[in-house]
Simulated assay, not measured.
Amino acid sequence: MRHLPVTALCTAVLLAACSQSTPAPDAAATAPYAARPELQDSGSQAILQRYADDPGLLAALQEAYGERPTTLSRPAVPPLGTLDLASDRVAYIKRTGWGAVSNYNAQYAAYATSGSVPYPGLDWTRDGCSAPDGLGLGYREDFRPPCNEHDFAYRNLKVYERTDANRLASDDAFYTNMKTICAAKSWYARPACYTAAYAYYQGVRVGGGSSF
């Protein structure tokens, strides 16, 4: 039996491999959703195009359509009243900035303008939502309450406990609060809302570092 030299054999293998057609890359996982009638508005289409290959957007769409369980988990927060003043203040910031919007609103109403504060040195200023790169413009008012709470978390944790973990937890809580709003909408409005919420979440994850 005639044996090819090693170099010739390698060349033959390479030529055979090159002669085979390269499989086409899989279409974006979110592509089937782009044709859904609930997502035909220009804002949703822009977000679908921007994050077409993003598994996070796919997960958001699957939640919106009931194709996977909705995840509305919140970061763990420490208890109050068992630590020194400085540590208790950080715990209060986390409980207020990472919890439900209703709790943040109650704290804001009680302390932001009353002159009575639970802990000294807290920043209650807020400025609502900035649409990320013009995406999700129609949801600035829907998401204003979560944006206000997110402002509180960022503006206080960057002073008293500035860590990457705290920034991530603040962003994750923000996303949960937006999805909570979306989950309460009608089945037809829910997908576009989830799509916008993901764009806002990516906006703070990618562009929020300079504000924290």
Rank of each mutant, 00 (worst) to 15 (best):
G43N: 11
D41M: 11
Q40S: 14
P23N: 10
A31Q: 09
A27R: 14
Q45I: 01
Y33W: 12
A31M: 08
Y51A: 06
Q20S: 09
A28M: 07
R50H: 13
A52L: 05
Y51N: 03
A34G: 10
C18E: 13
G43Y: 03
I47M: 03
A17K: 07
D53G: 07
P25I: 04
A24N: 03
A34L: 12
R36A: 14
P37F: 09
A27Q: 14
D41Y: 06
A52H: 05
A34F: 02
C18G: 12
S42D: 13
Q45F: 06
P37D: 10
T30Q: 06
P32Y: 06
A24C: 03
A29D: 10
D41H: 09
A35W: 02
P23C: 11
A28N: 11
P37W: 05
A27P: 07
A34N: 08
T22G: 04
A31C: 04
A27N: 11
Y51G: 01
A46V: 04
A28E: 05
S19K: 15
S42P: 04
A35I: 02
A17E: 14
S42T: 14
R36F: 11
S21A: 15
D41T: 09
P25G: 03
D53A: 12
A27W: 08
A46Q: 12
Q40P: 05
I47W: 00
S44Y: 08
D26C: 08
E38G: 06
E38Q: 15
E38T: 09
L39I: 03
P32I: 04
P23L: 13
D41W: 02
A27S: 13
D26Y: 08
P32K: 09
L48G: 00
L39V: 02
L39H: 01
C18N: 11
A52W: 02
A17H: 07
P23G: 13
T30N: 05
R50N: 10
L39G: 01
D53M: 01
P32Q: 09
T22N: 01
Y51F: 15
L39W: 02
P23R: 04
P25H: 10
S44I: 00
P23F: 04
Q49V: 04
P37K: 06
Q20F: 11
A24I: 02
T30D: 00
A46R: 08
Q45T: 03
P23H: 08
S42W: 08
S21V: 15
T22F: 09
P37Y: 07
Y33M: 02
S42Q: 15
T30I: 08
A46D: 05
A28T: 05
Q20Y: 10
